[in-house]
């Protein structure tokens, strides 16, 4: 599957999780918010696994190294143009 598409969806979901988590920090009793947050985290989890299987580890000292080489070090890194995608408007 297209790397840019998975990365874009994962970026979007992780951002929703960040914004919802910040909201829940000051609204810890909001059941609706917790439900939505967990849904987002669940979908992001599945997608993160897909991404890592296809393109390599995302987390420092948490993700498995699934190849013989320690591909955590692989280029490109996130601050480089080639790593990123253009958000655009569509899903």
């Amino acid at each position: 599957m297209d790397r840019d598409r998975i990365l874009k969806r994962l970026t979007v979901l992780d951002f929703l999780a960040v914004d919802l988590a910040l909201y829940l920090d000051s609204h810890p009793d909001c059941k609706e918010g917790i439900k939505k947050y967990n849904e987002v985290v669940s979908e992001a989890d599945g997608l993160r696994e897909q991404y890592e299987n296809l393109f390599g580890p995302l987390f420092s000292y948490r993700s498995y190294s699934k190849r013989d080489e320690f591909n955590w070090t692989d280029d490109p890194w996130p601050w480089e143009n080639d790593f990123n995608f253009v958000v655009g408007g569509e899903e």
Binding site: V12, L20, H27, E91
Partner: peptide, 21 residues
């Protein structure tokens, strides 16, 4: 004022806007 969660934005729109609210 304390915010209360109502409708959420569409996911991609939320990323572009900088918030889901």
């Amino acid at each position: 004022p304390i915010q209360k969660m109502c409708e959420l934005m569409e996911p991609v729109q939320a990323l572009l806007a900088g918030t889901v609210f």
